[in-house]
């Protein structure tokens, strides 16, 4: 057990920053594709993230390590949230998270050799939105994330051209609210 956590933390430790394009595919338990979308992800410690999906499901999520802005162009809406509430809704945040965040909330196990490790994270708190997460590595490169939720739906986030520890312009993690959109300030309420 401890070896899974230790090995996973080592992988994360070797990743000060991570950038990749991705294709996210959500399937029902019977394998039927519910949604598919393409996007880009940039992650940097501590807790910084930029997650952008393209049309037809355009959405931009920016975290500066404290606050998260969720800008939905289709809905003409920006929601602002505290970062700690969002980890369960934003699994990718774990990539830039701290050791305690992972150790406190997940039981981590590992399968496969050092060159094709698959880490499974099962939430300690069963009310989480998902039943388990998987992080699939090829060597030290993160290849895909899998999200398994209680309704049997499986979401695969397959990364393409992953880049580790490259410099990322700080502006990527800054968000300015565009003109004319509805702003929902969810910092304290929930």
């Amino acid at each position: 057990e401890a070896s899974g956590l230790a090995a996973f933390l080592t992988k994360l430790k070797g990743m000060e920053s991570f950038q990749a394009a991705f294709v996210q595919t959500s399937r029902t338990h019977s394998g039927e594709i519910m949604q598919q979308m393409a996007g880009t992800l940039a992650v940097a410690k501590p807790g910084k993230m930029r997650w952008q999906t393209e049309d037809p499901y355009a959405q931009l999520v920016v975290s500066d390590g404290e606050l998260i802005w969720i800008y939905d162009m289709d809905l003409e809406q920006v929601t602002i949230r505290n970062m700690d509430q969002r980890v369960q809704e934003t699994p990718a945040l774990l990539l830039s998270g701290e050791r305690s965040q992972i150790d406190d909330s997940f039981v981590v196990s590992v399968e496969g050799g050092s060159d094709n490790a698959v880490f499974q994270l099962v939430p300690k708190d069963p009310s989480q939105l998902f039943q388990s997460l998987e992080f699939h590595y090829q060597g030290d490169d993160l290849q895909r994330m899998m999200i398994f939720d209680a309704a049997g739906q499986i979401t695969e986030i397959a990364f393409q051209q992953p880049q580790r520890n490259q410099a990322i312009d700080e502006q990527a993690f800054v968000f300015d609210v565009p003109e004319g959109v509805d702003v929902i300030d969810g910092r304290n309420a929930f």
Binding site: V61, I70, E89, P91, L129, F130, D149, A150, Q153, T155
Partner: peptide, 13 residues
């Protein structure tokens, strides 16, 4: 109706 969370998780039917 299927409603799924923004990151593909937490789907309600």
């Amino acid at each position: 109706l299927f409603i799924t969370g923004p990151f593909g998780q937490g789907s309600s039917r």
